[in-house]
């Protein structure tokens, strides 16, 4: 049973989301680096690999595409991934500074508080992806305008999945200093062992083991789901897979989350 009526829960939700946004906009370098990172990949990496990587027609594409067009969904996934990990880093900071204790003294259910935090993170992810896609248009990458609208729910779902994963990590990181380990052991393997930068069949040609790892990496599900939605299609199987992983991560995140280590 909720300990607060709906109107009160709304105030709580609003406050947590607004605080996440305020905090983001106060750290101007965070927005800058969030955009520079994928743009560097798009401009430099894609230019270098464009001729080396041949891309066959695979769904959702109906024709041959340029490599720089191929990696845009993966880079959108990268934005959401880094934003989620940044949020989990701020959770560790909040726990060290004690603001997490204040948050968890709220009479609203803990799951609701964490859900509101995830929503704040998802809104930030959406904002960054939209800005990135707009900038990509300026670089002649053709993503359908309607595709961006189609992608709002899938970006949210990806943000919830990665945000929940971030919460689980935040619960296991005792100090801010340990966050470098998360970069090396979680973010990079998750990103590189996925279909974000190269199609799975390309990996299969090189190594079957790597192919299986990439194929069953949940981040691959999310990237492929984003790829379909950016081209105005919903792949129900991928949405179901990402939803399943999200529920699992959210369950563990909520049940293991503590204000204090």
């Amino acid at each position: 049973m909720n300990s607060l009526p709906a109107a009160s829960l709304w105030y709580t939700f609003q406050a947590i989301v607004v605080r996440e946004l305020l905090r983001f906009f106060q750290q101007k370098s965070r927005l800058f680096s969030a955009l520079v990172r994928p743009l560097l990949w798009l401009i430099v990496f894609a230019a270098g690999f464009r001729s080396a990587l041949g891309l066959s027609i695979t769904p959702p594409y109906e024709t041959y595409i340029l490599y720089q067009e191929y990696i845009v969904p993966g880079l959108c996934g990268m934005i959401v991934l880094f934003n989620a990990m940044q949020s989990s880093l701020s959770m560790v900071y909040d726990r060290e500074m004690g603001s997490m204790k204040v948050l968890l003294m709220s009479p609203a259910p803990k799951a609701f508080l964490l859900f509101a935090k995830l929503c704040g993170g998802a809104i930030l992810s959406l904002l960054q992806v939209v800005i990135f896609v707009l900038l990509a248009w300026g670089l002649d990458v053709n993503i359908p305008l309607l595709g961006l609208l189609y992608s709002i729910p899938t970006i949210f779902l990806t943000a919830f999945f990665l945000g929940s994963l971030g919460l689980i990590l935040a619960n296991h990181i005792k100090q801010l200093e340990n966050f470098a380990g998360v970069m090396n052991f979680v973010i990079f393997p998750m990103f590189f062992l996925s279909s974000a930068l190269y199609p799975l069949w390309k990996i299969q040609e090189s190594s079957l083991y790597l192919y299986w790892l990439c194929k069953y990496n949940p981040f691959t599900f999310a990237v492929e789901m984003l790829r379909f939605s950016l081209y105005e299609q919903y792949n129900v199987e991928l949405i179901a897979l990402v939803s399943g992983v999200t529920l699992l991560c959210a369950f563990f995140a909520i049940n293991t989350f503590k204000a204090k280590k």
Binding site: L4, T12, A15, M105, S106, P107
Partner: peptide, 14 residues
Amino acid sequence: QQNLTYFAALHGIG
């Protein structure tokens, strides 16, 4: 004020 109203909102107070 932002700190105080944030906390109030956490307690469901507008």
